[in-house]
Nucleic acid binder design. Structure first.
Lengths: 360, 360
DNA sequence: CGATCATGCAGAAACGTACCTGTCTGTCTC
DNA sequence: GAGACAGACAGGTACGTTTCTGCATGATCG
C-alpha cells in the first residue's frame, strides 16, 4: 500500500496489441516488422519500430519462448563438491571457464543460468533451457541424465565419465600434458619426480595419475605420490608436507590442483628445501599469483577460456541445428608456462647446506 | 488438417492435457493436485501425481511464466572492467559472492542468470527476470537503469553510486573497516602506514581512500599512497614497487585489492625488507593463499558469502512482496584475519642485517 | 424439511506472441 | 482487357499453463 508495489509490471507494460493499435496496423505486421520476418515496405517497418519505441514496448520473453520453443537460456551445470554448491573459489579454472562461456554465449544471443547439479528438482525443471553445459560430468548425475533423456543438447567440459550420451564434449589431452610436463622436469635435472594427486575418481585426476604412473614405468622410476581429497584446502597442505617428509623424498613435484603450488612451496620452506635448487615445482593452475611468488612457479594451464568458448559454440550449434560435420569431440591443447621453479640454475649459488630442516 | 497433429503426434513432452486424460480428471484438477492448490481429497491428489510421474510430465516453464508472471529467474549483473565480461578471476570476492548467492537463491526456488552489464540489449531483454542483483552499481549503467525503470526489483551489492533508486542494498562499512585496520597496524608498531589504492572512482575505492586520508589527518601522519588501475594485474606489481621505492618509504602497507598481498611481498623481497620485521602488511582479500604465503599475510575479509546471501534474501523478499519492516540498507561487518605479516615479532630473531638490497 | 454451505471437480478465459492462411489491392504480360 | 502474380497487410489459431467461475453433490442447521 505504502510502496509502489502494485503498479509494477502488471498493468503498465505495453503489449504487441497496443503497438498494433497505436501504429494503425495489425498484430502480424508489428511482429513481422520487429522481427524482420515478413515482406513489408521499409516505411512500415520504420513506423512500427518507432511506435514500439515510443510506447516502450518490450516483447514478453515468456510468450515468445512458449510460442517458439526457444528460450535463449543455457544451463551451466557444475558438479558439487562436499555440501557447497560448487567450487568457483577453489580453482580459478571454473571462474575463467565460466567467464569465457558467458562471453561466448552472449555474443550469440544466449544467456547462462547457473545450475548446480544438486539443485532441487523443481528449480531446474522450472527454467526453460535450450541446452546445457556440464562441467566435469559424472555418469550417475541425476540432473544431467534427466536432461539428456528429455532430448536437450548437452555439451560437457571434460569427456563424459560413463555411458552418458552427451551431444559433444571438449577436453584437454591430459595424458599428453602430463607426459610432456614430466619430460620437462626430467630435462631440468629431476631424478625422482613426485606427484600430488586427489582421492576423487573424476576423469581428470584419473587420467593424470595413470599418465604419471605410465611415465614412471617407462623411465624406470618408482612412483612417489600422495593423494588427498581435492576439495578440502587444508588437506592439500598436509599432503604436500607428507610428500616432502617421505624417506624417498622427490627432487621434483607436480601438483594436480591449483593451491598445490603454495602448499608445496610452504612445505619446501619448512624442510629447508630451496626451489628450484633442491626441489623443482610445477602445478596445474590458472591463477596469476604464481607469477609473483618467490620463486615464480611453473604452471600447466588447461586453457579454460578456450574450453569455455568451444563448449558454448558446440552447444549453440547443436541447438540451432547447425550441422557440425567435424567431430563432436574437441581437444584443446594445454600450455606449460615455464617459470623459475622448474629451471635448475647453475649450482654456483649453492652456499647454504641443502636439506637442513629449519624451524623458522 | 491440423487436427491430427494436435492430438496424435505429441512429439516430445506430455502436456497437462494428457495427464488429465490419462487420469480421468479435468485439467484443473491436475493443476491443483500438482501445485497443492485447490481442495482435493488426498486420494485424487495421489492418483494424479502418480499418473503424471508415469507419463514423465514436466510442466512447461514458459507457459507457467506467461500465466503467472513469475519466472523464478534472478539476474546477476556484473559491472564490466575493460573489455572482458567480468572479473571473476581477478578477485576471489566475486566468486565467493556468486557462490553464496546461487546457493541462497536455490534454497528459495530461484536460479541465477549471469548478465554482464554490457550485454546486448536484445539478450537481457529476452529473458524474463523476476528481479536483479547488481554488483557494484554505477549510476550510468544503462542496463540497470532500464531494469529499474521497468519496475523490476533491484538489490545491489555495494551502496548505489549516484541517484540509482535500487530496492535495497547490502554493503560493508568500508570506512570503519579501514580505520580499524589502520589502528591495528599502528598498535603493531607501524610509524608510517602506506596505502596501495586504485585509480577508479567506484565507491569501495573512494570510501577506503578517504578513510585512510582521514585517519592520517587524525593521527598526524603524512599520507603515503600509490594508485593504479585495479583491473590491470601487472600494474599492481609496478605500483607496489613504486610505493616501496619512495624516499618516505612506509613501514606498513595496506593494499585495497586482492593481488596486492603477493605484489607487496615480492616488492619487499626485492628491497630486502623482511615481513613483518621491516614492513607490516595487510591486504583486502578473500583468497586462501595468504594463509600459506611466507609469511602468512593478514587480510581483511569483506565476507562476500554473507553479502551474497543477504542480497538474494532481500531481493526475493521484494519479489514475493514480503514486507521487510527492517531497513532496506544492510551493513555486513568485515573481519580482519590477523596473520604473521601484521604482528611485529620480538627482535631476537633479527640476525641478518635489515634493508640490505639483494639481487636474489 | 427447505435453505445454507462446504466440498469436489469441470469449463473456459486469459497470458502475449508467432505464424499460417488467406484477402485485397495494384501492376505486368500477352 | 483479362488473367497472372506479387506485394502488403489482417484474421485467427495454437503454444501450455493457471485460475476464476460455476455446477453439482451431499451434509448441517434452524
Amino acid at each position: 500500500m505504502s510502496r509502489a508495489q502494485t503498479r509494477g509490471s502488471r498493468q503498465g507494460r505495453a503489449g504487441i496489441r497496443d503497438v498494433a493499435a497505436a501504429a494503425g496496423v495489425s498484430i502480424t505486421t508489428v511482429s513481422d516488422a520487429l522481427n524482420g520476418k515478413g515482406r513489408l515496405p521499409d516505411a512500415t517497418r520504420r513506423h512500427v519500430r518507432e511506435v514500439a519505441d515510443r510506447l516502450g514496448y518490450r516483447p514478453s520473453a515468456a510468450a515468445r519462448t512458449l510460442r517458439t520453443g526457444k528460450s535463449g537460456l543455457i544451463g551451466l551445470t557444475v558438479t558439487t563438491y562436499g555440501d557447497e554448491p560448487f567450487t568457483f573459489t577453489e580453482f580459478a579454472y571454473f571462474a575463467e571457464m565460466a567467464r569465457a562461456a558467458t562471453s561466448a554465449a552472449l555474443a550469440r544471443g544466449y544467456a547462462l543460468v547457473i545450475l548446480p547439479a544438486t539443485s532441487r528438482h523443481d528449480v531446474w525443471s522450472n527454467v526453460a533451457l535450450d541446452g546445457t553445459v556440464v562441467i566435469d560430468p559424472s555418469d550417475h548425475d541425476p540432473v544431467v541424465t534427466e536432461l539428456v533423456r528429455q532430448g536437450l543438447p548437452v555439451v560437457s567440459d571434460g569427456r563424459p565419465a560413463g555411458t552418458l550420451p552427451v551431444t559433444a564434449w571438449v577436453d584437454n589431452d591430459h595424458e599428453a600434458a602430463v607426459l610432456d610436463l614430466l619430460d620437462h622436469l626430467a630435462a631440468a635435472g629431476a631424478r625422482r619426480i613426485g606427484l600430488l594427486t586427489g582421492t576423487t575418481t573424476d576423469t581428470y585426476t584419473r587420467l593424470s595419475t595413470t599418465a604419471y604412473l605410465n611415465w614412471c614405468e617407462r623411465v624406470g622410476q618408482d612412483p612417489v605420490y600422495e593423494a588427498y581429497p581435492a576439495h578440502d584446502p587444508c588437506a592439500g597442505a598436509v599432503a604436500a608436507d607428507r610428500l616432502l617428509a617421505r624417506p624417498d623424498r622427490p627432487d621434483a613435484v607436480y601438483g594436480l590442483f591449483d593451491p598445490n603450488g603454495t602448499d608445496l612451496l610452504a612445505a619446501a620452506r619448512r624442510y629447508g628445501l630451496r626451489v628450484p635448487d633442491d626441489l623443482l615445482l610445477v602445478c596445474c593452475s590458472e591463477s596469476t599469483v604464481y607469477a609473483t611468488t618467490e620463486p615464480p612457479i611453473t604452471t600447466l594451464s588447461l586453457k579454460p577460456r578456450r574450453i569455455g568458448t568451444a563448449v558454448v559454440q558446440l552447444l549453440i550449434d547443436a541447438i540451432e541445428g547447425i550441422e557440425n560435420d567435424g567431430p563432436v569431440e574437441q581437444v584443446i591443447p594445454t600450455e606449460l608456462i615455464v617459470r623459475t621453479s622448474s629451471q635448475r640454475r647453475s649450482p654456483r649459488t649453492t652456499v647454504s647446506p641443502p636439506r637442513t630442516p629449519t624451524q623458522d
